[in-house]
Computed example of a mutant assay.
Amino acid sequence: MGKAAREQSARDRIKAQRDEQKQKDRRKRAVTGATVAVIALAAIGAGWWFAAQSSRSEQVGAALAPITVAADGSVVMARPGVEKPVLDVYEDFQCPACKALEETSGPTIKNLAAEGKLKVVYHPITIFPEQASKGITRGNSLRAAAASRCVPGGPSWIALHDKLFEEQPSETAEGFAIPDLIAWGKEAGVTDPGFEACVTSQEKAAAHAEYSTKIMDGQKLTGTPTLKLDGTEVDIDVAFKPADLRQAVLDAAK
């Protein structure tokens, strides 16, 4: 083989080796890219999984903590001797966001109280002004809250509380009719002989309206739902994530 032929053969081998190396490099980059993509997707999936777990509602346990109604209309749910941490729940039975909070984090709040890890104080209030929707939403809210005040306490109070949110009417429609409120109370287990007359006359409505104004002004509330843990407002993102809310309560108890 002549010199020229040998040089050409060497150049061909070098070119072939370079081409083969380029192919190896391309395959390596492709595999690395795919691996990174899989890792990225796994990370994203883990993030979604964690978010889903944080947002997943608990199931209410069989036993609830004792429930007592205070003279001012607030309602305490706590095991005997449990005084802290304290979670104040400011809510309006006509408020759609309050209904959403009850459906999402309500079971967690009940469970923490039942476990003896939290004292819960419910504050049903009416946030709607006199002129709201020509008085429809305010009237709905007042009737529902006044009816809840006719329950002396116990499991039937929280059962009616939950039923009122379940049956919450549209903000543009009249709802919480007196006959329905009475029927729902009986369904909730209210046996107090004065319940029906109390609901029918709406005798608690004026006291409820006065209490609402006092709470709105005193607590400087800008709306409902509002949760305050030991006096500090709970971030709305935490409030609507049961796992995060549970952790916040446990941290407050340390």
Rank of each mutant, 00 (worst) to 15 (best):
K3T: 07
K3W: 09
A5P: 00
A5N: 00
R6Q: 10
Q8L: 02
S9D: 13
I14E: 04
R18N: 11
D19T: 12
Q21M: 13
D25I: 08
R26S: 08
R26H: 10
R27T: 11
R27E: 14
K28I: 06
T32S: 10
G33W: 11
G33F: 12
A34T: 12
T35C: 13
V36F: 10
I39D: 02
L41R: 07
F50D: 15
S54E: 15
Q59T: 15
G61D: 01
G61E: 07
A63T: 14
A63Y: 01
P66I: 07
A71G: 06
D72Y: 10
G73V: 02
S74D: 09
V75S: 09
M77D: 05
A78V: 03
A78L: 04
E83Q: 13
K84R: 13
K84H: 13
L87M: 10
L87Y: 05
D88I: 04
D88H: 10
E91I: 11
D92M: 02
Q94S: 14
P96T: 03
L101E: 11
E102P: 02
E103K: 15
G106I: 10
G106R: 12
L112G: 06
E115V: 01
K117M: 05
K119Y: 13
P124N: 07
Q131V: 00
A132T: 03
A132C: 00
G135L: 03
I136M: 03
R138E: 01
R138I: 00
S141V: 03
S141P: 05
A145I: 14
C150L: 05
G154K: 14
G154Q: 12
W157C: 10
I158Y: 15
L160P: 05
H161D: 11
K163N: 05
L164W: 08
L164K: 08
L164G: 03
Q168I: 11
E174S: 14
G175Q: 04
G175E: 05
A177E: 12
I182L: 09
G185P: 11
G185Q: 08
P193V: 10
G194E: 08
C198D: 09
T200V: 09
S201P: 03
K204T: 12
A206N: 08
H208R: 00
E210H: 03
T213D: 11
T213G: 15
G218C: 00
G218L: 01
L221I: 03
G223T: 04
T226M: 02
T232F: 01
E233W: 08
V234E: 03
I236N: 08
V238S: 05
A239Q: 07
A239K: 06
D251I: 04
K254C: 02
